[in-house]
Nucleic acid binder design. Structure first.
Length: 155
DNA sequence: CCAGGCTTGGAGG
DNA sequence: CCTCCAAGCCTGG
């Protein structure tokens, strides 16, 4: 079984994904698209449709090092909400700048939702373009993608 | 060893 | 309010 590579659209950007089954190796934003498949949940997410990103795994969360622990903490942030670098640092027991560094090196954005980590006094950084971060947050706040966070609407 | 990064809180103007 | 600055902490070179 080989690692698959493909891209899908998110606004003006193309989201490139390397993956196999439910394990995601790499996600990056680029100007150009490429041929190939993208995991169902990421396609749905990028299209603004209900998606369960929790069904996917990232290579970044494996292990007991500080980075994996930071990435796991970031995955806990609910869709549509945000936290600060400082808060993540406190829960993991490290320093805010290290959280920033970990976010800048996040190999799998979206799966590890680093866009939900903002600075205390602003949006914080995001590469290749902070505008993507804003768009992701705006989309999530619209509520259409956050299926896993929806409350039951019974009776 | 040493600098750096998607920060932060405090000092000073 | 705004600018400046050092603490703090892993990782990669």
């Amino acid at each position: 079984m080989a690692i698959l590579t493909g891209s899908c659209r998110f606004g003006l950007w193309h989201v490139h994904v390397s993956w196999e089954g439910n394990l995601v190796y790499r996600v990056r934003f680029a100007r150009q698209g490429i041929e190939g498949p993208v995991p169902e949940e990421i396609r749905r997410y990028c299209a603004g449709r209900p998606a369960r990103l929790a069904d996917l795994q990232s290579i970044a969360t494996a292990g007991g090092g500080v980075y994996p622990r930071i990435y796991r903490a970031v995955r806990e942030i609910p869709c549509g909400e945000t936290t600060t670098y400082g808060e993540v640092a406190r829960t993991v027991g490290t320093a805010p700048r290290l959280v920033g560094l970990a976010m800048s090196r996040n190999p799998t954005p979206i799966v590890v939702p680093c866009h939900r980590v903002v600075a205390k006094t602003g949006i914080g950084g995001f590469s290749p373009d902070p505008a993507i971060k804003e768009e992701l947050l705006t989309m999530e706040r619209r509520g259409t993608v956050c299926r896993s966070e929806m409350r039951e609407v019974n009776r």
